[in-house]
Structure formats: structure tokens, C-alpha cells
């Protein structure tokens, strides 16, 4: 990547938070990549919307609670978070259940945004 060239990166998150390591890995990669001043957006689809469900308490399963870190994304200038409407509906969730401000949009709308990216990373 040449100096000064800004590319559009989209991270697509489709996995529930603790059952696999995808959610945590994605978050860490986003934070690392944010150091390079790229145009970053995050899409949460399917079970990925569960990553943002408020109120994680991981004491009982003895793993690190990484949910507070989503609230630091804004400090990293990562503030384009898109959440799939159909996924929320199928899980009884609403925008109010999300731990950070997000934009709710349909699958089709997310699909259109995906087409405009230079790089799509899948988690």
C-alpha cells in the first residue's frame, strides 16, 4: 500500500461472541489496522449482532470481557458500525440492545456497501 493512499476496509462479523474466537480476533485486528488511518467500517450480520448485545458478564465462564473495548472504537476513529436488521429481528433484539451507537440497515443495503469496499475481511 503506497504512502497516503486511503482504502476502504470493511470487517464483516457473523459469529456469536464467546463460542468461537472470531469476535475477539476481529476486534483486535480492527484496533491494530486502525493505526494505519484507513477508512474502516464494521458490519455485524447473522449471529455477529450478538457481539454488541449489552450486558456481558463473563465472570462465570472465566474469560476476559472484551465488550467494553467496543466503546473505545470511537477513540480509534472507527465509528461506522452497521447492523443487519433481519438478524436483529430473528433474535428478538433491537437497536436499544446494542452497546454502542450503530446504524441498522437491511442485508441488501449492507450488500451494496460491501460492493463499494477496496478490502473486505471476513470473521
Amino acid at each position: 500500500m503506497s504512502e497516503g493512499q486511503i482504502k476502504k476496509f470493511m470487517y464483516v462479523n457473523r459469529k456469536a461472541p464467546h463460542g468461537t474466537v472470531y469476535a475477539l480476533e476481529s476486534l483486535e485486528v480492527v484496533l491494530i489496522a486502525a493505526a494505519f488511518d484507513q477508512d474502516v467500517s464494521l458490519a455485524f450480520m447473522d449471529d455477529g449482532v450478538y457481539q454488541l448485545k449489552k450486558g456481558f458478564n463473563t465472570k462465570g465462564i472465566e474469560v476476559k470481557n472484551f465488550q467494553p473495548t467496543y466503546r473505545a472504537l470511537d477513540d480509534y476513529d472507527v465509528n461506522k458500525l452497521y447492523v443487519e436488521k433481519e438478524a436483529l429481528d430473528a433474535r428478538g433484539l433491537t437497536q436499544d440492545d446494542m452497546v454502542v451507537p450503530v446504524e441498522v440497515m437491511s442485508r441488501a443495503e449492507i450488500g451494496k456497501l460491501m460492493e463499494t469496499q477496496d478490502v473486505v475481511l471476513s470473521f
Partner: peptide, 15 residues
């Protein structure tokens, strides 16, 4: 304590 991460230097400076 608040965010569960050690911030990158750019973020630290700004914060």
C-alpha cells in the same frame, strides 16, 4: 479499567 485495552499511542495522545 474502562475499555479493557491499552490504547495505541495516537489514541493515548488524543485522549
Amino acid at each position: 479499567n474502562e475499555f479493557q485495552i491499552a490504547p495505541a499511542v495516537r489514541v493515548l495522545t488524543k485522549a
